[in-house]
Write a protein that binds this DNA or RNA. Structure first.
Lengths: 250, 250
DNA sequence: TAGAATTTGTTCGTATGTATG
DNA sequence: CCATACATACGAACAAATTCT
């Protein structure tokens, strides 16, 4: 039951020994990312100390970002954070493969709808024009990362829906229409709370935040190709903008 | 008590009439940004309809982003959103003045501390080196927008603390040390939930998300000047990255 | 900090009007 | 005229989140 021995009067405070013990369990992987720690009471029993002593250890690790405490839910090992570099040529599939990770996308729905004002403005269409709406869920190493809704001009890309369904890659599918290259025009970033659908798909506690991006991709002539809104699991991603490399073209 | 008349059998569904009435009140300003609507029961009484009918109207406006509903708290008119363009030369004071808004910064604390690993790495100092820590709260039009902690190398900028206290502008204060220009090297963006201090300072409900940015500013020789972490009230800001203008130097 | 009060969310059931074929 | 499907509207009860005392 125990396995970890603390030594009193060793010159190292008990709570520090506990913190070190927990840190080691995390490093060893016996407490993996996302894992929930035993309750404070259980830990206190296991280390044969008062609950306050455990709390002191947890507080220290929590300040250092090595644990995440949620009132009423428990204490958790923070999930591994994925770094998404935002560049003019951001591609989901590329981003992740660089880091020896395995990206994967699931298409949840494709349909033709009429553009509302926002969609029309971003795609430079008239309001009411037909657009292809694609809802998709992206995974990295089988962890859900983002839930996206994208809009494409339906007139310019007929049957893009099935094409994306086959290739599971926007980049690939667009090639069939002669788009060999495109680039990110703009990105807007906000923080939101997830709705029920989002927290379900992203397997996210409903009180955890969402990092929401709104982007417009354009072809080399500057014509808008895609307007997309993605919600990222806030705990699992960090968007990074490297101002120096941002517009370096290959 | 009433003031708004609904007409049955007019060919327009009751809930649509209610939605239009509420939308107009928002447009007129009698329901200003951030305002809380009467409860569903009160609205039902006022319009002499069932609570479901009110809910249908609110759901419609909520989907369109014109209302924000929070379980247990109420229904609110979304706050006006501030757009923060992220560029290589982002300056808080400049950003906002362009839009005829009034920025304002409050210094909460300045002290000399020793750099931990993260701070040292970002400022390219050795761990334990002295750094100036500045905690500040930024306002726009007297609304609290962001709570920031910044670190500067103390050796290079002695007495920067008082200088910023006087000028209330980092740009101004740095000029005293011969720094006429500096630029943003990188920005990292995450979504977090606020801690008690953050929600208090930002006057943010504790269940509303925080948009957190981590930035490094460098001088023209590439030497790190400032490492800063800012928490933005997620409801009140949107960060925008214009890929095309990002590195256009004046 | 424990429980009451408030407010929105969900799910039943019922009834009516309207468009379609 | 009938059958069906769908949107609209009302009523009641309970669940869940938040706030207040």
């Amino acid at each position: 039951m125990d396995g970890t021995k603390l030594s009193a009067n060793s010159g190292v405070a008990l709570w520090r020994q506990i913190a070190l013990a927990l840190e080691e369990e995390i490093a060893r992987g016996s407490l993996g990312p996302g894992a929930r720690l035993p309750t404070e009471i259980e830990l206190a029993k296991r280390f044969s100390v008062n609950r306050h002593t455990v709390r002191r250890a947890v507080a220290s690790l929590s300040e250092a970002g090595k644990l995440r405490v949620e009132q009423g839910r428990g204490t958790f090992v923070p999930e591994e954070i994925l770094h998404f570099p935002l560049t003019e040529r951001t591609r989901f599939t590329q981003i992740v493969e660089d880091g020896r990770r395995h990206p994967h996308r699931e298409i949840l729905a494709t349909e033709i709808v009429k553009a509302d004002e926002t969609i029309a403005a971003n795609l430079q269409l008239r309001k009411g024009a037909k657009v292809l709406r694609i809802e998709s869920l992206s995974f990295v190493d089988d962890r859900p990362i983002s839930l996206s809704v994208s809009y494409f001009p339906a007139a310019r890309f007929p049957d893009l829906g099935p094409a994306i369904g086959e290739t599971l890659s926007v980049t690939e599918a667009l090639r069939r229409y002669g788009i060999d290259d495109y680039r990110r025009k703009s990105t807007k970033i906000t923080a939101q709370m997830p709705n029920q659908e989002q927290s379900r798909h992203l397997r996210l506690a409903p009180n955890r935040p969402l990092l929401q991006t709104e982007k417009v991709d354009i072809d080399l002539d500057g014509e808008p190709i895609e307007y997309g809104i993605s919600g990222f699991a806030g705990d699992r991603v960090e968007l990074t903008i490297d101002m120096e490399r941002l517009t370096d073209h290959p």
